[in-house]
Write a protein that binds this DNA or RNA. Structure first.
Lengths: 340, 340
DNA sequence: TCACGACATGAGAGCGCTCTCACACCGTTC
DNA sequence: GAACGGTGTGAGAGCGCTCTCATGTCGTGA
């Protein structure tokens, strides 16, 4: 066993060449005689040389790291494996490009400051940001840092449409909702209700828009519209409200699977059968959707792929800052099971 | 607005002191006159100075980063928010100590090599590792890197008990299982079956041991023992097997909530009622456990806290390499709901 | 044979920081 | 008044790397 951490210098001495040549070989820079290149490579292997990233990034001004910032209330992150999937895709793509994934979870006000300072400090080459709420400070932080940034999910703040520096990756919530509701309509349902998520999140808004599209409505019928908050309990409560109004719905489109699960619970408690009395469609295709009784008809989105695309866009703008990249919307797909 | 990234030198010039003094102030080293200290601090604020971490770690040999390595098949990571919770706890504790969280997800053989090289390269100060399977190469990689390491979940390989360099944090699976099964026995159940997870994972093994403890058994009755694989379908299948044998069980302890959910499904399909005909207890207290019908009696473990403890142990050994830290086992708690 | 360009290699500066060491200055003691 | 220790500050080396530039070597054409 040789020294713990041999330096470029040591490899150079071992191979009988200069530091510069070893550097060229290690970095794959052309212009080194093949035989010399081989010799150096052997020395590298023999000594177990690993470049010191601190020294490298000190001179290159590149860190080889990307920050993934997730600003989410506990509930959302815990209730579904959304971020785990997302991270999986991101991780794959980043490591394929020799980039490290620096995870920053934001919970409280102070965390925003910490993240802001960190990003502005130039410790990473770019960032991937998740925040589902309107007017989240993350946008400002990203802008202040001057770092290439890709958002997960369409962000939302006044005038975002005009901001062409904004790059995001989102699933096609509107189209997915459209498909789900159209499916209900086509199977003969006439009084299709909707349970919406928090309307300060674009996903909830877009899904409601898809519902309106499918039914050709300017505004949903107030009697057929209830608010959940993307939680099981919220869905159960919303379903109860809907049943207490008239006309009673013969179908429900829930803004996500959690709320659909809650709706199922209420329906069961009221002695109504699904899908005979009331058809139910969810959104997200979480694992529990398939375990539900009856199994949920829902909308699937390829979340892992969404993560991959985010990372890919970022990598592209990292490698070529000139050519701007544009946002991507991933298609959604209806999964028909027993509930509708 | 001043230069994008002012250096120590610039701050020194601005404050009219030497680089060394600024460094002392920035790092909180004592031995600087209070008035000078204030002056320097003002300059730092005014110029928006942020230390360059590359330069710093080049000389200190400290990176200020910790790698979190997760080697898990997709299924586990996706099916439950276990790691999301874990990461939450880890993230909190690390950022409280000004350490960065570097996430490395291992999926295939090649990833192990990549991680091994990276860790050996001295890019991080320590590692937190997750791997539930026997003989996972992670242990070797950790050892080879020479980095302080804390494992999540008790690892398992030949002779691990004698390896006192090993530090892990785990929940008390054995005791949790004991409580769960004792609860079944105390409510008058006589034929308590067990559905086990993959027995190459310590959590599955320990939960089985707890089952034996509670019943005072050397080995479980083969007729009352079935294998799931920690999945819903596995649990459903195992439950069917158990019901086809005799004597039919009047209670089931499932090694996790997923399998318990599957068991519930089979019982419902067979027209058996829970808990009247068969009582069911799960493990983990995932969110879907509470949504099940009937809601699952299960065992809760404080996963966020587990993450915090892992990070805390690592931080401690980072700050004081002399004093060894010892493993920690987090208590588990029975949550009684409708299913048993 | 000589001038020339193409190509391969080495020398050396410098990235921004920490840390050791030398030095200056002060108050104390004999 | 000289010697002393304590304290605060600055000078400067050096961490391991990249990258520019100078230098050396070769093949080609006149």
């Amino acid at each position: 066993m040789s020294a713990a951490h041999p330096t470029l210098e040591a490899v150079a001495a071992h191979a009988g060449v200069s530091r510069a040549t070893v550097s060229r070989v290690v970095n794959g820079t052309p212009g080194v005689r093949p035989e010399l290149r081989e010799k150096v490579k052997r020395s590298v292997a023999e000594l177990g040389y690993v470049p010191n990233s601190a020294a490298r990034s000190l001179v290159t001004r590149r860190t080889g790291a990307v920050a993934v910032v997730i600003a989410e209330p506990e509930t959302r992150v815990f209730a579904d494996p959304f971020f785990a999937r997302q991270l999986r895709g991101i991780s794959r793509e980043l490591s394929a490009n020799d980039l490290q994934l620096l995870l920053m979870l934001v919970e409280e006000e102070a965390d925003y400051q910490r993240v802001g300072r960190y990003l502005a400090g130039g410790h990473v080459d770019g960032t991937l940001m998740f925040s589902l709420h309107a007017n989240d400070p993350l946008r400002g932080i990203a802008a202040a840092s001057g770092l290439p940034t890709v958002f997960g999910g369409r962000p939302w703040w006044p005038g975002w449409e005009k901001d062409d520096s904004l790059v995001y990756v989102d699933t096609d919530n509107r189209d997915g909702a459209r498909r789900a509701v159209r499916h209900l309509a086509e199977s003969g349902r006439r009084r299709i209700a909707v349970i919406t998520g928090p309307l300060d999140q674009t996903s909830a808004v877009d899904r409601l828009a898809g519902y309106r599209d499918a039914l050709g409505l300017e505004e949903p019928d107030p009697a057929l519209h209830a608010h959940g908050d993307f939680t099981v309990d919220g869905g159960a409560r919303a379903m109860a409200e809907l049943l207490d109004r008239s006309p009673a719905p013969d179908a429900v489109f829930a803004g996500n699977d959690l709320m659909a699960t809650g709706a199922l619970r209420t329906l069961r408690a009221r002695g109504l059968s699904v899908p005979e009395d009331v058809a139910v469609v969810g959104y997200d295709d979480l694992d529990p959707a398939a375990w539900a009784d009856p199994p949920l008809t829902t909308v699937r989105q390829d979340i892992v792929h969404m993560g991959e695309i985010m990372a890919r866009l970022l990598v592209r703008s990292l490698n070529d800052a000139q050519t701007p990249v544009s946002s991507v919307v991933i298609p959604s797909e209806l999964v028909v099971r027993g509930s509708a």
